[in-house]
Every structure is written in C-alpha cells, then in structure tokens.
Simulated assay, not measured.
Amino acid sequence: MSTHRHVKLLIVGSGPAGYTAAVYAARAMLEPVLVQGIQPGGQLTITTDVENWPGDTSIMGPDLMVRMEAHANAMGAEIVSDHINSVDLSKRPFTAVADSGTTYTADAMILATGAQAKWLGLPSEEAFKGFGVSACATCDGFFYRGQEVAVIGGGNTAVEEALFLTNFASKVTLVHRRDELRAEKILQKRLLEHPKVEVIWNHQLDSVYGADSPKGVEGINIKNTETGDVRKVQVSGVFIAIGHAPASDLVKDQLETHMGGYVVTKPGTTETSVPGVFAAGDLTDHVYRQAVTSAGMGCMAALEAERWLAENGETEGKDVSEPLGYGAKVEPAQ
C-alpha cells in the first residue's frame, strides 16, 4: 500500500555520513528521517577491526555502526528500514520513492549513499561470483581456512584484504598490474614483510577457471602486462579488490558528477548543483574515503541543511512548482 509523507529533511543512506547527519539534524530540531538503504551501516558492516576511529583503539566495523545508529535514534532521528529507488530533484519539495511504496516529499535532502565494490567485468569472474570469486574478504575469508587464495589489486583495499586473509589462508598471492603498490606505506610494510604473502608484480587477471560440479574456483590465469605471457596460479578463492565506485545511480542524471560518478560539491561545503540537496561521505569523496572524514561531512551537511532551510523556509503548503536558485526565498502562494 502506497503512502505519502512530508518531512523537513530526508537523509538517504546510512553509514558514518548518514548517521552523523541524523545526529546533528535531530539536535537542530529538523526531525530528520533517515532511510537506510539495502546495506544499513554501509561498507563498515563488512569490515572487521577499525583502528583509526578516534576514541577507539580497535572496534569492529559492525559494532561501530550499531552504536552510531543508536546515537541517531537517541537524539530523535527516525530510522527507516527501506530503500529509495528514485528521486526527483527538479523542484521543491523534492520527491523520493521507496521500495515499500512510500513517497517522501522533503524540504531538503542529504545524500549519503556511499560506494560499492568495483568488478573487472570478466566473463569468468561473473561465472564464479559466489563460488570462489568475491569482493569482500571479511565476508568470505573464513571459508578459505588453510587454503591458498589470490587478491587482485594494489591499493589500500587490496592490501587490507590480503592482510586480513592471512588470518585464514595458508598463502595469499597478491596480483598487481604495476611494479609498485599504491597503498599507504604502513600497509605496504606489513604486507611485504608477512611470511604468508607473495606479490606478483606486473600482472593482471586474465581469467578464472574451475570445476562445474560442484562449482568452484581451482585457479586463475594471469597475464604479464609487459610481455603478454599468461601463467596459471592455483588458488581456491579470488578476491577482487580494485576499489569502489560511488553509488550515484540514483542522482547521476540530476546532479553534477565527476571522476567516474562522484557527486560534485561546492568547495569547502556539501552543497550540490541543486540548492537544498547536500551530499556527504564516499558518494562525494574520491580522495580520503575514511569513516572519520565521512562522519565529518555528515556533520557539515546537517549544519548546512539547517542554515539553508532557515533561509529558504519549508515547502509544505506553499507553491514551489519552480526550481529554486541559490539563496532564493520561498514565498507563500498568492
């Protein structure tokens, strides 16, 4: 059954950015409604130890997200378990339609939809997804206890995945297409010094091979990026760790984007190309991509939404059929 709700501030997406925005918006008496999305808590829910969250020497990612959600609830934010599948940002009030059938209209909106894992797009990769090919070591690493696995990539994601997998696998082979890693130096040091890790430089994944009955990975073919030669590496699992792409499909045709889909924000703010719509976290951040920076942007978005609403007013019961420009005032219908 479809329903309609009008809210002052709608927050789309959870995770550090969304939950922090909800905390600040609730404290500002904006009565925010946060729609969590398909993966409540975002990428941190598939992360184990988080060692760089201020105030916690070490905390499990899912535990941190539970705490942040509880904090937002305690401040008065309404947390909804639903998924927004379309939005209309062409005029105020903005409109968002959820999978449940609920249609939200909102005076202002904060987007915090985060990012998602990238894939190489190989047919064999697709064929063995869920049968030995994964993009989440923390989700699937346990299944490879005492076995040999491969990690594809060379950035922070790949090195973190490889180090995590050493807790289970007998050997971890990292395949990187270049001759040096892009990961942080401290992570590189840990990886290169680990006795269970072998790095194969200047190679890329060419294909995954395995059995059909029962279906499972038996190895990979990797190609030398300099000579083109192909060699086999026997592994039971393959983890694709080539980074993440912003989850901007919802707004890619309505907001300005760059760098492969990241939402553009005005320098030093979370303001997007549509006044009254703010974006925070990994949806906008192609540089830092950290939980703490996402939380900081969530704070910024809530404060900026509060100020913007104070200047532009609420839309309920008012004629706002025309899109508004920056600084435009909403006047009562005559």
Rank of each mutant, 00 (worst) to 15 (best):
E271V: 09
E184D: 15
A115K: 06
F131H: 15
N85I: 13
S14N: 02
V7C: 10
P62R: 10
L163C: 03
R231L: 12
K266S: 12
L255C: 10
Q204L: 12
F164I: 00
P54T: 06
V330L: 12
N85V: 14
A310N: 11
G327V: 07
P332G: 00
A112L: 09
T102N: 09
T257S: 11
V251L: 00
D282W: 06
P62M: 10
Q334Y: 11
A158L: 07
M60H: 08
T270L: 02
D282T: 11
C139V: 10
G327H: 12
H83G: 00
G261A: 03
R182N: 09
L250N: 06
A70N: 15
Q147F: 01
G243I: 05
S124G: 08
A158F: 05
G42I: 11
S294M: 08
G155D: 08
N221I: 00
A302T: 07
A108Y: 05
A22M: 09
A280H: 04
E126G: 02
E180W: 12
V50F: 07
N156D: 15
K129P: 00
M300K: 11
A135N: 14
L9G: 10
M68K: 13
V264D: 03
L120G: 02
M29R: 15
G228A: 03
W119I: 07
S2L: 08
V197L: 10
D56E: 14
K171A: 13
G261D: 08
A72F: 02
Q147S: 14
K196Y: 01
N156L: 07
V23D: 01
A328Y: 04
